[in-house]
Design a binder for these strands. Structure first.
Length: 478
RNA sequence: GGCGACGUCGCCAAGUGGUAAGGCCGAGGUCUGCAAAACCUCUAUCAGCGGUUCAAAUCCGCUCGUCGCCUCCA
């Protein structure tokens, strides 16, 4: 039983076999740092974080590389030469480098809140200009790229016969429409820029054998992935919107140079829509994570994202978000009770019914990272746990065993953390609440319900809810 | 115009050939001094039509609808 992954290259689920097991080289397209991260980033990087975690848990030695695009891409493949970071720099009256760094910090800050692990290598495009120039030069020498009289360099797509194998596009049919202004010095409309000459007004530019300029949109990923992983990557991930042209062009410029397969498994997460429509910068329905986190806990968002499969379109709405929050809270409360009961214990032996459920979880994850099923399996296990917890003679060893499995599923693999639980269990608060519960128990025994209810109501006002079970009284903290 | 995805219970969402997971909401019940929680039970034949098959939500065709990519975008 191995892991299967849906490979965009074949459009089928395939058994996952890395080039050099147990090592896995994985590259995911990182953000362009010219603004705060949005919901789409949250989805994409949560998805790949879970993929990363599950591969590691499964025994693979993963090197996860992610770029930071701090060279502004062109806003279009035209000659106007404006780039996004430079634009933002003008807007904020800052240096482009300040903009890039500011939003890089902002990005990692948001990712941390979502409990997304840092990649093993986070690399910046601006730190690899030399390698990019070398790569471009080699492509020119091999005849795949050409320098124009304006000192722009383009990749000649027609020379690379496999162009289109990822996106399924055929050159003849992709003739650019009227919406794109073709740069005048291209040989063919489908050619894409590897390097562009910069004029004086340009803020981000570097020296090169072809004069002062800046790199094209696609080259950084080819160059950095090769440098840190190798000529063939096991996994390359990104949003489905990157399939064309970005990843198609990456394949071309990489394979043209090395003659080897660039990617073994291309993985793309589907888009996130807001109330049924695409979230777009120009559409104004943009949801910034920093704003959203004022209303909902980041962990709830993570849970919400994982409740749908990464290859499905995920529609974000307030209603579905709230439904997810209620479900999340229920899970958190159940786990809270379980952890409280079993803390500082180690299980002995195994329990067949628990193992059965646990293996269902792993199977779901192995099957192209089916997190919705994985989560439904957790609910099944929690049902088992709650039932056991409710018994007067509950099996503490079994509960401990369950809690150990739950930790693997939520913390280790799905990366869903219940921080409040741990905090609640440890400090003096717990002792105080337990003392009050004891007092209330006394009053109830004496049928002094007035006092017992006072304790319960007062605690409720503080956000502490008491829950009487058959065996004992548990509590949850909001 | 080209390429692609999707349409499953009131809502969210799995299932891709063997007879519909899970979550939210709702109804009933058990427990309980009451309340809450927990647990149990109940609620869909899968957009429509046609075809392939012993068997289809799952494969094929058509129709309708929604969305995405083709321009930076996760």
């Amino acid at each position: 039983m191995g892991i299967t992954i849906y490979n965009t290259l074949s459009r089928e689920k395939e058994d996952f076999i890395p080039l050099n097991p147990p090592f896995v080289g994985m590259y995911v397209c990182g953000p362009t740092v010219y603004g705060d991260s949005h919901l789409g980033h949250a989805r994409s990087y949560t998805v790949f974080d879970v993929l990363y975690r599950h591969l590691k848990w499964s025994g693979y030695k993963v090197r996860y590389v992610q770029n930071i695009t701090d060279v502004g891409h062109l806003t279009g493949d035209t000659d106007d030469g404006s780039d996004k970071i430079a634009k933002q720099a003008v807007l904020e009256r800052k240096e482009p480098v300040e903009i890039a760094y500011k939003y890089e910090v902002s990005y990692f800050d948001d990712m941390k809140k979502l409990n997304i692990l840092n990649p093993d290598i986070s690399c910046r495009a601006t730190g690899h200009i030399i390698e990019m120039i070398e790569h471009i030069q080699a492509l020119i020498e091999k005849g795949y790229a050409y320098v124009t009289d304006q000192n722009n360099i383009y990749f000649e797509v027609r020379k690379f016969k496999d162009y289109g194998k990822l996106s399924g596009r055929v050159l003849e049919e992709t003739k650019s429409g009227e919406r794109i202004n073709i740069a005048g010095d291209k040989r063919n409309s489908e050619d894409f820029a590897l390097w562009k000459a910069a004029d004086n007004s340009h803020l981000m530019k570097w020296n090169s054998p072809w004069g002062v300029g800046y790199p094209g949109w696609h080259i950084e990923c080819s160059v950095m992935s090769k440098k840190y992983i190798g000529e063939t990557l096991d996994i390359h991930g990104g949003g489905i919107d990157n399939v064309f042209p970005h990843h198609e062009c990456e394949i071309a410029q990489s394979e043209a140079l090395t003659g080897k397969p660039f990617i073994r498994y291309f993985i793309h997460n589907n888009m996130l829509t807001v109330n049924g429509t695409k979230m777009g910068k120009s559409l104004g329905n943009f949801i910034i994570l920093k704003d959203l986190f004022k209303e909902i806990e980041p962990m709830v968002l993570r849970f919400y994202i994982l409740q749908s499969h990464y290859r499905s379109v995920l529609d974000f709405s307030k209603d579905s978000m709230n439904a997810a929050k209620v479900g999340f809270d229920r899970m958190r409360n159940s786990i809270f009770s379980l952890y409280k009961k079993t803390k500082d214990r180690k299980s002995e032996g195994t329990f067949r019914d628990v193992d059965e459920i646990f293996s269902q979880f792993i199977q779901a994850m192995d099957d192209d990272f089916n997190t919705p099923i994985a989560i439904s399996v957790i609910y099944e296990l929690l049902k088992l746990s709650n039932t056991e917890l409710n018994k007067t003679d509950s099996d503490i060893n079994k509960l401990t065993y369950i809690s150990e499995k739950i930790t693997i599923m939520t913390d280790d693999i799905l990366g869903i953390q219940f921080n409040t639980i741990e905090a609640g269990v440890k400090n003096h608060e717990d002792q105080l609440i337990s003392f009050l519960i004891e007092m209330r128990k006394q009053y109830r025994a004496e049928k002094n319900f007035k006092m017992s209810d006072t304790i319960r109501d007062s605690l409720k006002e503080m956000g502490i809810t008491l829950k009487d079970g058959a065996a004992e009284t548990a509590y949850t903290i909001d």
